[in-house]
């Protein structure tokens, strides 16, 4: 599904990614771990097409398409969804208008008619149950006045609405208490289809207890330095990253 080769990227002239290679097949979950500033979020932002980052070398192919030549919204409509680490407030834009625009953009990309208002509303009602989202929040502007946990929940709710084939969860577990974490993680599992792939960025094993990765990668200083199976995450939880640094 996703194939990254020799990816180099920088922001404001500073190189963050220094040659990343990563292949994710249909239905696979890859966990990405690493110290703060190692480049995990950068990698995700480059995949979704944040204009702040400049790709200086390498390629990303998504289902055979050259991802880097696509606009941010084209990538989204091709099925890529990111749950942001810090979802932004957009005052004045209501959740309903925002999601209607997003859902219809995707439908248009698929050659479908825009959704009828009533169908859209019942879809919202149904999907918000998956993450136990308060209906009051749906009536507000995007993320406006949401707590940290509510924002994360809102991200998964939007994922439910947009039904992506490839998800990026960027520290979706941070700022969540145990119950909220369970709801969000179980929500993700419920939404996942057999061929849905994902990158999960986390510092903690506890999220991976719910979402079992096929592979765990360690990203240090802009490169993937170690890859293993789910057990690697447990070793890291216990011993940190220093031993990996010593290894290389």
């Amino acid at each position: 599904m996703l194939e990254i080769k020799n990816l180099h990227a920088s922001i404001n002239g500073k190189e963050i990614l220094k040659g990343v290679d990563l292949t994710i097949n249909d239905g696979e979950i890859h966990a990405l771990m690493g110290t703060n500033g190692a480049g995990k979020s950068t990698l995700c932002k480059v995949i979704v097409g944040d204009p702040a980052y400049e790709v200086t070398d390498g390629t990303i192919r998504f289902n055979g398409q050259d991802l880097l030549s696509m606009k941010t919204e084209e990538r989204a409509n091709a099925g890529i969804f990111m749950s942001f680490q810090h979802p932004i407030e957009i005052p004045g834009v209501s959740m309903a208008n925002f999601l209607k625009a997003a859902v219809n953009a995707k439908r248009q990309a698929m050659g479908l008619e825009p959704m009828k208002a009533s169908a859209f509303l019942s879809m919202m009602r149904e999907k918000r149950k998956i993450v136990a989202m308060d209906s009051k929040l749906i009536n507000r502007s995007v993320n406006e006045g949401f707590s940290g946990g509510e924002r994360k929940r809102n991200e998964i709710f939007q994922m439910a609405m947009l039904e992506p084939s490839f998800c990026i969860l960027d520290e979706t577990d941070s700022g969540l208490d145990v119950d909220a974490l369970r709801i969000v993680a179980e929500g993700f599992n419920k939404l996942r289809k057999p061929d849905t792939s994902a990158i999960v960025i986390t510092h903690y094993q506890r999220l991976l207890d719910y979402i079992t990765p096929n592979q765990v990668h360690v990203l240090l200083d802009g490169r993937i330095v170690k890859t293993g199976d789910a057990s690697l995450a447990r070793v890291i939880e216990e011993k940190g990253f220093d031993w990996i640094k010593d290894e290389i």
Binding site: V48, G49, D50, P51, A52, K71, T72, E73, A76, N77, F81, M82, F84, P87, I88, I90, P91, G92, V93, N97, F98, L99, A101, A102, A105, K106, A109, S141, V142, Q158, L162
Partner: peptide, 22 residues
Amino acid sequence: ALFYMRQRGIAEEEARMLLKNA
């Protein structure tokens, strides 16, 4: 905000208009 909206698949022009309206 523009980037966030585009990540959700909303075309840039429309995202701009939504933000101007807001």
